[in-house]
Amino acid sequence: MPLSNSSPRSRPLLAVIMMALIALCCAQRASAQSPGTLSGPGFLETAAISNLFELETSKLALARTQSPQIRAFADMMVEDHTKIAARLKRAAADAKGDFTFPTALDGEHASLLEKLRAASGPAFDALYVQIQTTAHQQAVGLFGAFANDGDQTALKAFAAETLPIMQNHLAQVLKIQVKT
Results as ranks from 00 to 15, higher is better:
171 A>L: 05
22 I>V: 11
103 T>D: 07
4 S>C: 13
90 R>G: 06
39 S>M: 04
110 A>I: 00
98 D>R: 12
1 M>H: 05
129 V>S: 13
4 S>Y: 01
87 R>H: 15
150 G>S: 15
11 R>A: 14
173 V>I: 09
92 A>Y: 03
180 T>N: 08
151 D>I: 14
7 S>M: 07
36 G>F: 10
163 L>V: 09
86 A>G: 04
96 K>N: 11
53 F>K: 00
97 G>W: 13
150 G>I: 12
130 Q>H: 09
30 A>Q: 01
83 K>H: 12
158 F>M: 05
177 Q>Y: 04
58 S>Q: 10
55 L>V: 06
73 F>C: 01
148 N>Q: 15
131 I>S: 14
149 D>H: 14
31 S>L: 11
88 L>Q: 04
165 I>N: 05
47 A>T: 12
89 K>S: 11
75 D>W: 10
102 P>N: 07
84 I>H: 07
95 A>D: 10
68 P>I: 02
12 P>L: 12
45 E>C: 05
44 L>I: 00
133 T>W: 13
113 L>M: 05
86 A>N: 13
29 R>F: 12
64 R>M: 14
103 T>A: 11
64 R>A: 09
121 G>I: 08
91 A>F: 06
110 A>C: 00
2 P>V: 00
7 S>R: 10
9 R>I: 13
94 D>R: 11
2 P>S: 01
31 S>W: 15
3 L>D: 01
68 P>C: 00
107 G>I: 06
168 N>I: 00
69 Q>L: 08
8 P>N: 05
39 S>D: 07
44 L>T: 05
110 A>T: 03
100 T>E: 15
111 S>Q: 08
165 I>F: 07
130 Q>E: 14
158 F>E: 11
169 H>Q: 08
71 R>I: 04
175 K>Q: 10
172 Q>T: 00
119 A>R: 09
87 R>Q: 15
169 H>Y: 08
118 A>G: 13
80 D>C: 04
23 A>C: 06
45 E>V: 04
125 D>T: 03
36 G>C: 13
104 A>N: 13
36 G>E: 12
95 A>W: 07
132 Q>S: 12
118 A>E: 09
169 H>R: 08
35 P>A: 02
61 A>P: 04
163 L>T: 12
25 C>G: 13
100 T>Y: 10
101 F>T: 02
152 Q>I: 07
89 K>T: 12
104 A>T: 13
133 T>V: 06
157 A>F: 03
28 Q>R: 09
57 T>C: 01
21 L>Y: 12
63 A>I: 08
116 L>Y: 12
70 I>A: 06
73 F>D: 04
71 R>C: 00
155 L>W: 01
170 L>F: 06
6 S>L: 10
57 T>H: 00
110 A>K: 00
81 H>N: 08
127 L>P: 00
154 A>L: 07
17 I>L: 06
103 T>M: 08
142 L>E: 07
78 V>C: 05
84 I>M: 13
148 N>R: 15
128 Y>M: 14
